[in-house]
Design a protein around this nucleic acid. Structure first.
Lengths: 107, 107
DNA sequence: CAGTATCCTATCGGATACTG
DNA sequence: CAGTATCCGATAGGATACTG
């Protein structure tokens, strides 16, 4: 196997990396970790995010299939099964960030 | 414990997320995974990266302490102990990306 | 409450050309 | 080989005001 390799320029996995590039996607996905939430609850949870970035980030997340809206016609946002599986490595990453934040040198 | 929470606006862990935001930092770090490498080897390895982005990304990586240059006075670039520890969650993420790339919907 | 619409700035990122 | 210097367009992201 090992069909894909993120080091290769034309690898589809690069698309995934671009999806979480920008600081907000990870935060929003982690914000949805403990269950479906409505827009304003999510905005409160993802500290510091503006409506613009929340809307934009959710649009990308829904568009890519990481997030769904159980009752369309607008309701809460929730992680899809795919989004939920992505949460595993993402949580490992945020845990690392929380643990080693103090060890990073200032730029 | 649990001093830091990436969901909080002023959390230092956010700095880490910003560090890997942009598509190239992850690719460069993974590119250094199997050992120290010189500039042009790394450019070849990180498929598609331009000199500009490689230089810029390496500068951020070195500045934050994730990457070091064993023999300063210019030589190869290598992961620091910190960078190496970050590689663990990063590899989990890229593996996810490689495994689930085909399941993501087109935007 | 849940967005949409503007405006504006800073950074990302590619292309290209140049230097020691 | 290992960068630096420019120029350029596209995107990220914040602030603010407006809508149903």
């Amino acid at each position: 196997m090992t069909e894909y390799d993120v080091l290769l320029a034309d690898c589809p996995a690069r698309t995934t990396l671009e999806l979480i590039s920008g600081s907000w996607m990870i935060v929003v996905l982690v914000g949805l970790a403990h269950g479906p939430q409505r827009y304003s609850d999510l905005q409160r949870r993802a500290g510091g995010i503006t409506k613009k970035m929340l809307t934009q980030t959710l649009a990308k997340a829904v568009g890519s299939g990481l997030v769904v809206r159980p009752d369309r016609r607008g309701g809460a946002y929730a992680l899809s099964a795919l989004g939920d599986s992505l949460l595993v490595p993402l949580t490992a990453l945020t845990t690392w960030a929380e643990t080693h934040a103090d060890e990073l040198a200032e730029l």
